[in-house]
Design a protein around this nucleic acid. Structure first.
Lengths: 243, 243, 243, 243
DNA sequence: TATGAATGAGTCTTCATTCAT
DNA sequence: CATGAATGAAGACTCATTCAT
């Protein structure tokens, strides 16, 4: 009766696939790439065979997780590029990458390992990520916001290193501060504010603007007053909550 | 036949312990902390039982390796402090730590993992390392060579991150360059050379001075002309080679 | 749309059963009894559940395959008996059994395994096969074409062994020759042509007569000139092809 | 103190290896090549890891079993050749091969499978076996005891088939009789005793002579009274037992 | 009724750890 | 003390069977 009754069985399968992927992503993040499939299956609430049905080997599962995480980042890059000026987009994207990548040591390792992966899907995603980063970098350099003597490889390595910095710091806030300090190294020399010491300047590296009610990313609005909500619904809802 | 046959066992034991430790250090560096003890025992040229005689568990062996590596770094810190001016000692030491730590992902992981280690020896070594770094940092800050708004924790995290940067970069030279760029962030703002872009400046962060003939570390000589050789023998040898 | 939509299910079911049986027969022949049901279901073009609907377990499916193959042989025995003289029928049937059974190691194994089968259908088919073979053997013995000191069990074992001979020989032609040699052992001693060595004598053990044009089995014609074609159509067709 | 005290540890290992090999041989014979290693390890009374230590994979274990069985047969061929006249040696050896091979369907399968084995040891053993059989066959043919129009491949296939015959027959004695009947097909035509039907003639195909007391193979003694015992010890022992 | 997704017991293999020699 | 063989608990993966859609 519904729009897709013949997809019912497949709907279950898709749901299970998503559950497995989510559980695997979390498990890999928490315990590294050596977590047992049993743990992942248990976390996902399915049997071992179900994991195998969707991902014929552990390596393929790991790849699928990485592909998804990379694709998410590529999507974020697209949105950053569409929303703010090139330099802000570049630094904002880097900070988002670092933020999401700390605690994903395995993902960083996988991305920077020289050995090629047996399956092409991850290589393709890595290529897309690199291209997206490259475009942001070039735009920011053209805009004069980023020094011109750094390459995409330089930025990639620095980003991975920043994820480590953040993860390695005892105090997450201190880690964030050091990350910003390190990322500032990329700024064009003329932009280095002189005379004043490095300070925790939240304005310099800011996060993606999001709806204050539901957290959705906000569409680009280059003119006018910056939007606080994703739409009328959320504005109304916030109004009700506040009154 | 030997002079002290009753000590032969002890001497053998000590030699075996060193062999195992060296093999384990290399194996952990090359294959990560999941390398099997069989590989280590084989590399060391001893039986599996011998490894266990000296290190009752794999975790303890890993700890011993880390302790040794940390103690080496602490010794290096002592020598840096004794040899050059505070800022140079600080940056030189950091670069040495980074250089030795890239390719030792497991060591960095272990040092920055929040979970406490079951055995106290590693914690003690980590404390000594932290203290040595702290002393170098404070001296450099007092000398005006390093910004005063960074803590030892900040530096530790940055150092670990720099090791990752170097290891993650496709081109080792590019990695070294990015590491220097990131470490420069620590320099006191007044010291930031303005107007000129970041360039590959080997003089800024230099390595520990070593004998040009045999590579031995050179003893501290705070005044006078910097020594090029570790002694007369090497100077003579170099002279012969060059003439 | 069809004439009998309410019978479609039954017709489909019967068709599916046949498809599964055919696929299973081929798969067991090709890959042995350990082939997975997934392969069989895929070959049959149905889902795993459909296989189970018709054959509640793998063992039952294997039994069904064997029953069909045995029943085919029993039918062949009937036709041989009806068509040629007793000795020729006996040897021709044996050769057909051997020919069909080489490459069906699993079938031979199953038939000669001492353990009783849990389901009676296979036992019944085996009984029918044994009875058919017994009748052919007795008739041939009565006709003086087969030595009288061999039993049905002897012939069964020899037949299975001949299938192995054929399958084990590197050269299929050489295998066929050795099979004929071994089967000749059954011929009554007086029939052993003396003085001449064993030669490849296709006439001695000949195959079931078939239409030379379309390959259909030829109906029994105990008198008159042996038929070459199954009917006027094929005779005409062959005439056209040859002229 | 003993001759090989330093081999003490290895003596255990050798004993375990033999135990595993024996258990594996029996298990493969009884349950086919798909027995689980767990069963074999349990039968051998060792842990799973011990099996793995001696045979790094199941395939290698299976190969080792086959190699041993083949080498035993090659040794038997050598002894047959040294002891009796060529024709008797040939038929005696064949009967011994068949006798040992019935119930070893997997061994026969392995020997006649066309696919080459990944490891060379089995191929080498198979070559040795084939060569030994070839020599016996040629000698018997030169002596006029075996028809000259059969090749080594023919004999190999026939032998494997005879093993199947024996195994397939309900009555082991009947199987043995049919095997002899089939093997008689190889005898040179002039040697076929005419006029008398095939009878169970134990003298025609006789077994290897063995010591009546301890069962050891008896050394060749082409002249004089055939030996009944392997030496004075056994003769004395038999005498005591009988008196 | 057909489908194919889910299950979970079982298999091979690895390896940290113990122990007999 | 050194050795390396033995152990057995896991882990990845398979597949016959069941069941929801």
């Amino acid at each position: 009766m519904t729009a897709a009754p013949q997809d019912a069985g497949r709907a279950d399968a898709r749901r299970n696939r998503r559950k497995v992927l989510a559980a695997a992503s979390q498990a890999f993040d928490e315990h590294g790439p050596d977590v047992s499939l049993g743990v992942i299956a248990h976390q996902a609430g399915v049997g071992a065979g179900t994991v195998y049905r969707h991902f014929p080997s552990k390596e393929i599962l790991l790849e699928a997780v990485l592909v998804q995480q990379l694709d998410d980042l590529v999507e974020a890059a697209r949105q950053w590029a569409a929303r703010v000026d090139p330099a802000a987009a570049f630094f904002g994207f880097l900070l988002e990458v670092v933020d999401k990548s700390r605690g994903r040591k395995h993902a960083c390792d996988a991305l920077t390992t020289q050995t090629s992966w047996p399956r092409p899907s991850l290589a393709a995603s890595a290529r897309r990520f690199r291209q997206a980063l490259d475009e942001l970098l070039r735009a920011a350099q053209r805009a004069g916001g980023v020094r011109t003597d750094v390459s995409t490889d330089d930025v990639t390595a620095l980003t991975v290193g920043c994820a480590t910095i953040w993860a390695a710091h005892r105090d997450p806030n201190g880690g964030a501060r050091m990350v910003r300090l390190a990322l500032e190294s990329l700024r064009a020399p003329s932009n280095v504010t002189q005379g004043r010491g490095f300070r925790d300047t939240p304005g310099t590296l800011h996060a993606m603007p999001r709806c204050e009610e539901c957290g959705a990313r906000l569409e680009a609005r280059s003119t006018g007053r910056p939007a606080r909500y994703c739409g009328a619904t959320c504005r109304q809802r916030a109004h009700r909550r506040l009154s």
